[in-house]
């Protein structure tokens, strides 16, 4: 079994100490760093590339959400917060892992067991370097709504001004990234840029209809139709024939 590298991010030293104490019972979780605010956290995460972060939501100047938004791809996250259940409900629907402070041992065990399984599963696969693999997740804060989206569930990405609109599991959310950037970051074996405006997930293709002059129309499983530009159609055929 692989060990799991963790970073603790909380503005209160005692809160970090408390997490350390709790983690003593889970020797495969190794604390590789501690940060007292979001900026330190971002720095540590980029340098150490941990498997897991324990993240406080309310911190000075930048919140835990701001931290996640600043990352190209988020490691596995467990939120630790003193907020009550009601306040956390906004992102509970997205099945985020969170623990309420002070943290109960049972809750800690349950959450860590789940997260451990997920991380081990990911680690068992060959590593994909520099791209966001389909098992990774992206964090999106769209207004008050927070989404933690598994990349493999994204069916379709649309360019909307400076934003990219991600469609996943019947929902959609705006991410402040350009389509060009996402094209580079996302796993090219499953994501394909069909035209200037759109990227599709190849796993969501239902049917491909050839149009005149060699261009294509693709029907996605969620009923959406996209037209592949002439220039991209050749690339697409090349990709699909492999």
């Amino acid at each position: 079994m692989h060990s799991i590298n963790c970073i603790l991010i909380d503005d209160e030293r005692l809160a970090r100490e408390e997490l350390r104490l709790l983690l003593q019972d889970f020797p495969d979780f190794i604390i590789v760093g501690e940060a007292a605010n979001a900026d330190e956290g971002i720095d540590l995460i980029t340098r150490l590339a941990p498997d897991l972060i324990f993240l406080d939501i309310q911190m000075p100047e930048k919140s835990g959400f701001d931290l996640l938004e600043a990352l190209d791809h988020a490691p596995q996250v467990i939120f630790t917060t003193a907020f009550d259940q009601y306040a956390i409900r906004a992102f509970e629907v997205n099945a985020l892992d969170y623990m309420l402070k002070p943290i109960r041992k049972e809750r800690m065990t349950k959450t860590l067991t789940k997260v451990r399984a997920e991380i081990q599963q990911q680690k068992a696969k060959p590593p994909t370097v520099a791209v966001v693999s389909k098992d990774r997740q992206v964090f999106i804060k769209d207004g008050d709504q927070c989404h933690f989206v598994k990349v493999s569930t994204i069916s379709f990405i649309q360019s909307v001004g400076n934003y990219a609109k991600l469609h996943f599991e019947g929902q959609s959310a705006l991410l402040h990234r350009s389509l060009n950037l996402l094209e580079q970051k996302f796993d090219p074996t499953i994501f394909f840029r069909v035209n200037r405006q759109e990227i599709i997930n190849l796993l969501f293709i239902e049917k491909i209809v050839p149009l005149f002059k060699g261009s294509l129309r693709i029907h996605l499983k969620d009923g959406r139709q996209v037209e592949v530009s002439e220039r991209r159609s050749a690339k697409f055929k090349e990709r699909m024939s492999i």
Partner: peptide
């Protein structure tokens, strides 16, 4: 205020050991 109270309790929890 949940924020004050729970954070304070959390700190106390750590202090008990430390």
């Amino acid at each position: 205020n949940p924020h004050f109270l729970f954070n304070a309790l959390n700190s106390v929890k750590a202090m008990i050991a430390l």
